[in-house]
């Protein structure tokens, strides 16, 4: 699926459409396992597994070739994780037609904002994210994606799995 092609996702208003925002971390895996456990036997639930890869600045690489190589490796790794998360849901009783995976590589200053943009486009009723449980100081300097989503999400529920 391309960046701007949402297939029939917009028509899923009548379904319970969950957006699980994931990365390669353990807390993302925990969030997916929670979803599997909680909704595994629900037939009217649709899950989009979304991963955002922020395009890294050119400053971090000696040249464009190295940057592209990094992105390619990151994309391959993330696709593997998404496939693994899909397997977890299938193993819990989800049907293949209830799951969509979506990987977005894009310039973004905030992953939280990017997730919220996707939620708005897809019109999901629940955003599910894992939480790392970072320290106060760490949140001060780096910010927290789950806090950002909690504070800024509109027209949807937010489920934070710890």
């Amino acid at each position: 699926m391309s960046e701007n092609d949402f297939g029939d996702l917009r028509r899923r208003d009548t379904e319970r459409h969950l957006l699980a925002a994931v990365d390669e971390s353990d807390n993302s895996k925990r969030a997916v396992m929670f979803l599997a456990d909680f909704f595994g036997d629900s037939r009217n639930v649709f899950v989009t597994l979304l991963s955002i890869i922020p395009e890294p600045s050119e400053d971090f690489f000696p040249g464009e070739a190295e940057r592209q190589a990094w992105l390619k490796e990151k994309e391959a790794g993330m696709q593997k994780h998404l496939a693994g998360y899909k397997e977890i849901l299938l193993g819990a009783g989800f049907q293949a037609g209830q799951i969509e995976t979506r990987l977005s590589i894009r310039p973004c200053t905030s992953i939280g904002d990017a997730i919220l943009e996707e939620q708005e486009k897809l019109r999901c009723c629940i955003i599910v994210v894992g939480r790392r449980g970072i320290s106060h100081s760490e949140e001060f300097v780096f910010g927290s994606t789950s806090s950002k989503i909690l504070h800024h999400a509109k027209h949807c529920a937010v489920m934070v799995v710890e």
């Binding site: 400053d59 971090f60 905030s110 001060f140 300097v141 780096f142 910010g143 927290s144 994606t145």
Partner: peptide, 15 residues
């Protein structure tokens, strides 16, 4: 200088 930022791109600058 540049730094690897997290959710808050400008957090370190603001600090």
């Amino acid at each position: 200088y540049n730094y690897q930022h997290g959710e808050s791109m400008f957090g370190f600058d603001l600090q």
